[in-house]
Design a binder for these strands. Structure first.
Length: 558
RNA sequence: UGGGACGUGGCCAAGUUGGUUAAGGCACGGGGUUUUGAUCCCCGCAUUCGCAGGUUCGAGUCCUGCCGUCCCAGCCA
């Protein structure tokens, strides 16, 4: 699965793995990617996926996909399916598909073990009492009045909890650790709560469900995970992770290692906020091309490889970071530049008439699909007397260094010949509606005269042959780097009103119609575009702009 | 406020047990090639590792003290 050529980048987790392998602590590593099936995966999850699967692949180990499905209130099979689809799309295949729910019986038995050893008890306080007696930062917690129940009573109560004899919230199984610990997670954490709701996989078999902390470490141990990699916010949970495994006859004791999540600017990543964006209609769905979800990025046109490369280059460490989206954009550009077939498209057309081109005639020119990769072959590009060019490529009164069409000026038509502007027509409002040019037949691509140089090449599409297309121009979802930075303003106030601008009369050359949803092109001088799935139900192509080309001219003009 | 972590150039980040010129990528600046102002190719870009002391022949790497940032008070994960 090591399909990305660049050498691995060193990071502290990889070093731990290398040391564990060299010292003989493990002769094979096992990792897991453990999402809760309660939402869609986003670019941040991709970091964890690349890390877990990447490490195992590099060192000949295995990675399980495990659904952490311990809270039936929020989870569903649909999310699980979407997650599997996303992981596979990213280019990874798991060793085994597991679920925390596969271990419910074992988890239950270990809980009984804990109770029998006096390490867990049934607390019958209500949620509010449990909360208030936990204390707070700097204030020690108070022990529950039920903390010293007999083992027999605890066993009886716990079994009855399981059997459904009590309502939700009536009792709670807690680990007996230390109500005075500075670490809040060690103040007798909950292990099992009553939830009389069906689970998407176990149905109504259980009336009690294990908490994350109880289920996670044990699941890791059951699967023989060697390195349990998670994000920084679980650092405080590590002592508890270890305490649980130290207090039951666990098959092994995996090492939990935490790394910093990777944040991107100009977006939000929390599941709750992404859900709000979808539910409130700010975007069209989880797969809206502006979303940082895997599904959104995929639809936008991002390649799986570019996402893998992005995370590889970003690295893995423990320092909080916000990576500019530009870095992600750069990753797709690199990948698409390598692989995208070229084509021409005019997004904001203005008509050019070649006055010395024979009336009523047309011809098909050959153009490479990729200028640096002749092995990709050629395409046929139709040419006629009337052409569309980009409105921005003509200026009546151009600034200095404007290498495009201007009155009396010459410019090369990409893949064709040199033209000279001899006249232009404006409408009543002063808007240019037609540009008259003469072409130089000797300068046609392939002929000796083609060697003649002119400063500037512009793209074009034949009026007669061009296809009308809808182009969805996507931009960042928010107009500030960190929509959550302002404590007094809601992040939604920073939504970018131009995150989607639809161009419904773009003109593309015929090859584009041969593409299928998911296929992508570089429209020369414009950017990288992907055919959207909506094209399937449309009489004309619908394209998503994945990312623009780098544009140093635009930069100079800023 | 108690506990846990982090702080290397604009953004990421390497820097294994202190050893001598502080990787690499992105961004940026300059030059070259080019029928995409794209790509590609050169070259430049931290006397300095949050700050202040200390230990040492020698410290980003060890010690002390400050400062700053993040996480934890769900019967969520």
């Amino acid at each position: 699965m090591n399909k990305d050529q660049t050498p691995p980048v060193s990071n502290f987790i990889r070093n731990i793995v290398i040391n564990d392998l060299e010292s003989g602590k493990h002769d094979k590593i096992a990792t897991r990617f453990p999402p809760e099936p309660n939402g869609h995966l986003h670019i941040g999850h991709a970091k964890s996926i690349c890390l877990n699967f990447g490490l195992a692949a590099e060192f000949g180990g295995t990675t399980n996909l495990r659904f952490d499905d311990t809270n039936p209130l929020k989870e569903s099979e649909d999310f699980a399916q979407a997650i599997m689809n996303d992981v596979r799309w990213l280019g990874f295949e798991w060793n085994e598909l597991r679920h925390a729910s596969d271990y419910f019986q074992q988890l239950y038995e270990y809980a009984i073990y804990l109770i029998k050893n006096g390490k867990a008890y049934v607390d019958s306080q209500d949620a509010e009492a449990v909360r208030s007696s936990r204390g707070s930062f700097g204030v020690e917690g108070k022990e529950s009045p039920y903390r010293n129940r007999s083992v027999e009573e605890n066993l009886d109560l716990f079994e009855r909890m399981k059997n459904g004899e009590f309502a939700d919230g009536e009792h709670l199984l807690r680990a007996r650790i230390d109500m005075t610990s500075g670490n809040m997670h060690m103040r007798d954490p909950a292990i099992y709560r009553i939830r009389k709701v069906p689970h998407h996989r176990t149905g109504d078999k259980w009336n009690i469900y294990p908490m994350y902390d109880w289920a996670h470490g044990i699941s890791d141990a059951i699967e023989g995970i060697t390195h349990s990699i998670c994000t920084l916010e679980f650092e405080d949970h590590r002592p508890l992770y270890n305490w649980f495994l130290d207090n039951i006859p666990a098959p092994c004791h995996p090492r939990q290692i935490e790394f910093a999540r990777g944040n991107l600017d100009f977006t939000v990543m929390s599941k709750r906020k992404l859900r709000e964006l979808v539910e409130e209609g700010h975007v069209s769905g989880w797969d809206d091309p502006r979303m940082p979800t895997i599904a959104g990025l995929r639809r936008r046109g991002y390649t799986a490889k570019s996402i893998r490369t992005f995370w590889k280059e970003a690295g893995v460490a423990k320092a909080d970071s916000i990576i500019p989206v530009g870095v992600l954009e750069n990753a797709v550009r690199n990948d698409m530049n390598e692989n995208a077939p070229r084509a021409m498209a005019v997004l904001d057309p203005v008509k050019v008439i070649l006055t010395n081109y024979p009336e009523g005639e047309s011809e098909w020119l050959e153009a490479p699909l990729h200028p640096q990769k002749p092995e990709m072959g050629l395409r046929q590009v139709p040419m006629g007397r009337e052409l569309w060019i980009e409105r921005g490529d003509f200026m009546e009164e151009p600034p200095r260094k404007f290498f495009r069409l201007k009155p009396g000026g010459e410019v090369r038509l990409r893949n064709a010949f040199i033209i000279k502007c001899v006249d232009f027509v404006k409408d009543a409002e002063g808007k240019v509606v037609e540009i008259h040019c003469e072409y130089d037949p000797d300068s046609r691509s392939g002929l000796p005269g083609a060697a003649r140089k002119v400063k500037g090449t512009i793209h074009w599409v034949s009026v007669e042959h061009g296809l009308t297309a809808e182009v969805r121009m996507y931009d960042r979802l928010f107009n500030v780097p960190n929509p959550l930075a302002d404590k007094d303003r809601d992040y939604r106030e920073f939504l970018n009103p131009h995150s989607l601008d639809i161009v419904d009369n773009a003109i593309v050359e015929p090859v584009v119609s041969k593409g299928k949803p998911g296929d992508y092109f570089q429209f020369e001088r414009v950017g990288y575009f992907t055919i959207d799935e909506d094209s399937a139900n449309s009489d004309r192509p619908i394209l998503n702009r994945t990312v623009s080309l780098r544009d140093s001219w635009a930069k100079i003009n800023r």
